[in-house]
Amino acid sequence: MLTGPGATIGKAKKLRQKMTLPEVILWRELRKRPGGIKFRRQHPAGPFVLDFACLESRLAIEIDGEVHSMGSRPAHDEARDIWLANQGFRTMRIAARDVLADLNAVLQFILGECKPLHHPSGGPPPRTGEEF
């Protein structure tokens, strides 16, 4: 389980109250567990808070607004991505404007990346080359 220290957990709780419009719009859909996949919002991860996370798929989802291309933010985002990769997580970055422009396309993109790491219960694992 990916988590963070007390200060990060506190920050995550505060950020849940101050989500951006694109985050709120996306969360309305992700909280419905599309495809049976569970997502978390503003999830603490070490010293960072992830916008969204699918722990089962080890996927971090970041909604990037214009500020992510300014000042020291790109270096901060790269450090976060490297830290997450060292924890076994992939990072998916989605532009906030894409969430506002085509929510359904964003949802399909996210669900396409959320592949479970383990085979479903109730049956054997898939043969090599087969999807499950």
Rank of each mutant, 00 (worst) to 15 (best):
L2I: 15
T3R: 12
T3W: 08
G4H: 09
G6Q: 14
G10C: 03
K11T: 06
A12W: 04
K13Q: 10
K13A: 13
L15M: 14
L15C: 08
K18G: 06
K18S: 13
K18I: 03
M19Y: 03
L21C: 02
E23Q: 12
L26Y: 08
L26Q: 12
W27M: 03
W27S: 04
W27Y: 00
L30W: 00
L30I: 01
K32W: 01
R33H: 10
R33W: 06
G35I: 01
G35V: 02
G36C: 02
I37M: 13
K38H: 14
R40I: 04
R40T: 04
Q42M: 13
H43D: 11
H43W: 15
A45I: 13
P47Q: 14
V49Q: 04
L50D: 13
D51C: 11
F52H: 02
A53I: 07
C54F: 02
C54I: 02
S57P: 00
G71C: 14
G71K: 15
R73C: 00
H76C: 08
D77F: 04
A79D: 13
L84P: 05
A85V: 00
N86T: 07
Q87G: 01
T91L: 03
A95H: 11
A96N: 09
D98P: 02
A101W: 07
A105C: 09
L107K: 03
L107T: 01
Q108W: 11
F109Q: 12
I110K: 02
G112I: 10
G112K: 09
E113W: 15
C114T: 14
K115M: 15
L117C: 02
H118T: 06
H119W: 13
S121W: 12
G122D: 07
G122Q: 05
P125D: 10
P125L: 10
P126G: 08
T128G: 00
T128K: 10
E130G: 00
F132A: 11
